[in-house]
């Protein structure tokens, strides 16, 4: 009887905690705004031409904190096979990050702030999504 009870408690804990994180917007990444600024200003302009972000301004960069927008972005990621697979690969120490400018959202994955410190590493996926969630582009930065 006890093992079953423990299993149920564990399942309840995992489920509710999982839902809890889904109800919140992701935190701010230590270099988050700089990362978006790099994309909008100094990375290959072909990326901006392709995604239509040429006219986005770095002064517009904001963390996404609106719960509806976060929920919509999570749903969008979950519905896309490539992004869903990328999202499923994150470890317990990592999280997804959401940023926005006037007409676009920016999504990437990295360590949670509490686990993050600068380290050398390979390029990582960076998704640009237009604000009506009808189109997206995947880059590696």
């Amino acid at each position: 009887m006890k093992p079953i009870l423990y299993s149920l408690i564990a399942l309840f804990y995992l489920t509710t905690n999982g839902q809890e994180s889904e109800k919140k917007c992701p935190p701010e990444f230590p270099y988050g705004k700089l990362k978006i600024e790099l994309f909008l200003t100094v990375h290959d302009s072909k990326y901006r031409q392709k995604s239509g972000t040429l006219n986005e301004k770095k002064s517009q960069i904001k963390l996404v904190s609106n719960l509806k927008e976060c929920k919509a972005l999570r749903f969008y990621i979950a519905q896309n096979k490539i992004y869903r697979e990328l999202n499923e690969k994150i470890t317990d120490e990592e999280t997804i990050y959401f940023y926005k400018t006037s007409n676009f959202f920016y999504v990437f994955w990295n360590y949670k702030p509490e686990f993050y410190r600068p380290k050398m590493g390979s390029t990582k996926p960076f998704v640009v999504i237009n604000n009506d969630l009808s189109q997206s582009w995947l880059f590696y930065l």
């Binding site: 270099y31 700089l34 990362k35 790099l38 990328l86 690969k89 994955w109 600068p118 380290k119 050398m120 590493g121 390979s122 390029t123 990582k124 996926p125 590696y140 930065l141």
Partner: peptide
Amino acid sequence: CDRAEEEYIGGPSDEDYFF
């Protein structure tokens, strides 16, 4: 390499730059 691109293209990553 987790979540790496299909073909290595060289140069620094954003992470290398942040470091």
